[in-house]
Amino acid sequence: MAIVGNLDVGSGHEKSVEPSDGDLWARSRTGDAEAFGLLFDRHARLIYNYCFRRVGSRETAQDLLSMVFLEAWRRRDKGLPADKVLPWLYGIATNVVRHQHRSERRYAAALRRLPAPDAQPDFAGTSDEHVDYERQARTALSLLEQLPSGEQDVFVLCAGMELSYEDAALALGVPIGTVRSRLSRARARLMELDSASGHKNGESTIQEESQP
């Protein structure tokens, strides 16, 4: 399955004047909320999708998204290499998902202050589409949950969100070798599970594709 990994950042000209993640992060560290808002614009969609793939619920993923960025702001003293802001956000998201209840307690007050959404028409087609996404995510999760949590993290980051081994290692705070071995074990285990269940159903939940 092909997964598009990054948001469109505009034309080449716009790109050349756009501040880098590193610049925005440096400004955020001094308390610049506007710069932090630009980082949100840039990475929120990916972080939301990562959370969605970890929990299988659109509503929960949206709340997790808020918690991830609130947590990132709380930890803004962290010095980061210029191109590692997104992997670091993935790391925070991984912890927020893993310790979801603790995060919910920590940010319960902030989430209660979230204004109610404007009433908007929810077109039937869009709604059906999202129901399908949630069903698909839950099917994936039912397989993932049979792996140790460390392997789940690595698999979703590397196979689901297409992070490099290096970035996944940074996100999870583990050596690159650990990422490789966990991913290898996760893949082997998933293939076993797939062959066990797929042969019964005649339908495979594991997709295979050629690596470029």
């Binding site: 997964i3 908007q120 698909q136 994936a140 698999f155 689901g160 050629s210």
Partner: peptide, 19 residues
């Protein structure tokens, strides 16, 4: 060759939700 779980595609949250 690589293998993957069939994750749902990248998509946006509810309209206007990110803002």
């Amino acid at each position: 060759m690589t293998d993957q779980i069939a994750f749902p595609p990248l998509h946006d949250p509810h309209p206007g939700e990110l803002e």
